[in-house]
Design a protein around this nucleic acid. Structure first.
Lengths: 175, 175
DNA sequence: CCGTTGTTTTGAGTTATTCAAAACACGCAC
DNA sequence: GTGCGTGTTTTGAATAACTCAAAACAACGG
């Protein structure tokens, strides 16, 4: 655990309400051309509950409902999901990879520099956003990824009140 | 070296011509409030020669002119440079951290999904670019970082001619 | 129900990076 | 110029986050 918890606490409804019933989850897994298995269902549900989670966090979550699961299984499931378009992998600088159920929309992320919390941010520029740099140096651009860095509301408050300014970035498991 | 050569071959003049004379390099190090040492000079010069290099690549480069240098020293130097505003660290998904001499301007990067080459891209939207998302979810935004993904000119050619397609370097968000 | 093929477990390896203690050296004071 | 204090670098080792591979296992089409 190099950096922070980089996860969401709980009630973190994504814009499109995430599917949670077992059969709905199973359906989306099947729809991605994958076999439906217990670990996959568990990971997908954990992902619905806590977007922007690390593999490790998902592993812990999954273990509570499916104790026999291995970490490698979680990595495998996430790789399959990512390849199948069921999930998206993001890798903010300084943190382990985070996963979220992919919405197909192209949204971006804002990361708190202090506590590591991640939130979704809709693309300001509409559909294909910053997708066209002025000079792409001859590259055929396929995708653009924007990461915003800043202070989350909670950390703003903490910094404002706590004039005794100690922490700043890389605080431990402050969930 | 998990991925590819994530570096620049050679003649890769950054927009503002990089400083290369020993005393100029020394000056900028001093200006950052750091002691001038041989490893630091070597790393800074290597960085001028090959922007977007990994610590390991810089280590190799530095070794040719300063054989006694340790990898940890390079990491230390880069950390000091980054903290002192002499260099910038970028971490494209799937690759080790890359370093470049920071220009203070806010430019972004385009990464080839096939060979890993990185180029600078000026911000299309002017000074403070995509810095203001519509809804920042209450975050105090401090910075925005854009990463473009696509095919570099060379790889476009290779893919076009080599119809025998054994391509693709663990392709990222190619959607 | 059965076999095939895709998954998961088990066990081990790798890479990029960080930590810590001791040797060293830059550059200011004298 | 020389000595010294503090910042650097070397040396040595540890860690986090993944990845690889072989064997056990289980979905699901027939």
């Amino acid at each position: 655990m190099t950096t922070t918890g980089m996860t969401e606490t709980s009630a973190e409804a994504a814009h499109p309400a995430p599917v949670r019933t077992v059969d709905a989850l199973a359906d989306s897994i099947r729809a991605a051309g994958l076999k439906v298995t217990a670990p996959r269902l568990a990971v997908l549900r954990a992902l619905a509950d806590a977007p922007h989670s690390t593999a490790d966090r998902l592993f812990t979550d999954v273990r509570t409902e499916l104790p026999g699961t291995s970490l490698q299984a979680v990595y495998g499931v996430l790789a399959a999901f990512t390849a199948g378009g069921l999930a998206r992998k993001i890798e903010p600088s300084g943190s382990a990879a985070l996963f979220e159920r992919r919405v197909g929309d192209n949204h971006h992320h804002i990361v708190c520099t202090r506590c590591g919390t991640v939130r979704d941010v809709d693309c300001a520029v509409g559909e294909a956003p910053c997708l066209t740099p002025d000079d792409a140096a001859g590259f055929a651009v396929r995708a653009a990824e924007v990461t915003y860095w800043g202070l989350c509301p909670a950390c703003q408050v903490e910094l404002a009140t706590t004039l005794t300014g100690p922490p700043l970035l890389s605080n431990k498991g402050a969930r």
